[in-house]
Design a protein around this nucleic acid. Structure first.
Length: 270
DNA sequence: CGCGACTCCTGCCGGC
DNA sequence: TGCCGGCAGGAGTCGC
């Protein structure tokens, strides 16, 4: 489900509602996520306050003063707040009962997400090697050009590599490459300096536009109190195999790259 | 070190 | 209608 825009929309949707609130009780209904939810979490968190909710790539970071609750939504995860007594969903695995009769619920049918604890996020295994944020100035044409030299992978895999840049998943990789006029199968090493610049700008534009639209809701993504996003209406190639290219009218192609579906226009992208 | 394949899991959809 | 194969927004891990 979630790439950077969806995680950011989730954060924006719940930050104001949870920041400054006390965690009255933790409820772990299913601890078998990508990694087990740590056993000591209840003791660590109950009674603490959520000081802030931040994001790094696709990770959410709840600053609880004594440490950071680290959360990833995986492929099918979502996070929303509800009145305490509102009915649970089948895959609501982790619930933070907050001061003021609010419950923050992590729902994740496929259980590829995670809920972890760290006192030193800078050095945490999952965070320490992450590349720059795509919307930051340090992610620019020169940086991507440098990173693409002597790489054997195709360009789509390069921009989906979180050590190169965080937050670009399968949807936005295809969309950004379409916006740039670059085929997903192009070799990274053959990317020109100009193409690097174009691609970086396209990634920024596409991600910003998606955040503005509330993210992409393909199946069941929702944030905050459950409202869907609308960026899927602006998708130009993703999941549009066989449909007409919005620019040239040609047929959108689908090709597997690294076991993931990739969509492009053979006419517009070279 | 870089790279490709595999893996975890549930749900849904299309074809027969 | 029911069953089955394939596919799904991620990314760590393993073997080469």
């Amino acid at each position: 489900m979630p790439e950077l825009p969806e995680v950011e929309i989730t954060r924006l949707g719940i930050a104001a509602a949870v920041e400054g609130r006390r965690i009255e009780r933790l409820e772990v209904r299913e601890s078998r996520l990508r990694w087990p939810i740590p056993r000591g979490l209840k003791k660590r968190l109950e009674g603490q306050y959520i000081l802030s909710l931040k994001r790094r790539g696709k990770y959410l970071l709840f600053d609880c003063g004594t440490g950071i609750l680290l959360m990833h939504l995986g492929m099918s995860g979502s996070l929303c707040y509800r009145p305490r007594e509102s009915p649970l969903k089948k895959h609501d695995h982790f619930i933070m009962h907050l001061q003021g009769d609010i419950s923050l619920r992590f729902c994740d049918p496929r259980r590829f997400g995670c809920v972890l604890w760290t006192v030193d996020p800078e050095q945490h295994k999952l965070l320490k090697d992450l590349g720059p944020e795509p919307l930051a100035d340090e992610f620019n044409g020169q940086y991507l050009y440098q990173q693409s030299r002597k790489r054997k992978v195709v360009i789509k895999n390069l921009i989906m590599n979180s050590k190169i840049v965080v937050g670009v998943g399968n949807i936005y990789a295809s969309e950004s490459l379409f916006e740039s006029g670059i085929r997903p199968t192009r070799s990274s090493a053959k990317l020109t300096r100009l193409q690097s610049e174009t691609l970086v700008q396209a990634i920024k534009t596409v991600l910003r536009r998606s955040i503005k639209a509330g993210g992409t809701t393909l199946r069941d993504f929702s944030a905050g109190q459950g409202q869907p996003g609308y960026f899927q209406q602006q998708l130009k190639v993703y999941d549009r195999e066989g449909l007409a290219c919005v620019v040239c009218g040609g047929s959108i192609k689908r090709k597997l790259i690294g076991q993931r579906s990739s969509y492009y226009c053979g006419q517009c992208q070279k």
